[in-house]
């Protein structure tokens, strides 16, 4: 495959990508997607949230998981960064603390895929940022 260098190269790739993506989208509707929000304020980024987000994206692509990886702000858990919030449809969101790349993969394999809880969950009566606003 040639290297993609311009918008035109991207346009050429579009067709092949479309078929791949539509296969994945058919099996899982948007509301059935797992949402993973990586806290990426100053505290999160300084603690390594960028690597965690890159790892998660790679993992989701490799295993074709129905997961959307996105960014969030500081939730006040600066001492526990990097943190990620995982919202599995139909369940309350769970915030995991001190997530490095290895733990991110463990969370995907155990919590998202198998539904098992693992250590390092931030308890409290947690609400997502949207609910607080």
């Amino acid at each position: 495959m040639n290297k993609i260098k311009s918008l035109d190269d991207l346009r050429k790739m579009k067709q092949s990508l479309k078929s791949d993506i539509s296969i994945r989208e058919k099996s899982d509707k948007a509301e059935e997607m797992v949402r993973v929000r990586v806290a990426m304020a100053t505290c999160g980024i300084a603690a390594g949230a960028r690597e965690v987000m890159n790892t998660l994206l790679r993992k989701v692509e490799q295993d074709s998981l129905p997961v959307v990886v996105t960014q969030g702000g500081c939730m006040g858990y600066c001492y526990a960064e990097p943190t990620i919030e995982v919202a599995v449809p139909g369940k309350d969101p769970v915030v995991f603390s001190h997530v490095d790349s290895a733990r991110a993969l463990e969370i995907v394999d155990k919590y998202i895929v198998k539904g098992e809880l693992i250590d390092g969950i931030i308890p409290v009566n947690y609400q997502t940022i949207q609910e607080k606003l």
Binding site: S6, L10, L17, R58, V68
Partner: peptide
């Protein structure tokens, strides 16, 4: 990309390469 989701990891990879 004509409506392909920009938050799809595969699409993000291509954009990264470009």
């Amino acid at each position: 990309l004509d409506g392909l989701p920009l938050n799809d990891p595969q699409v993000m990879n291509l954009i990264y390469e470009m």
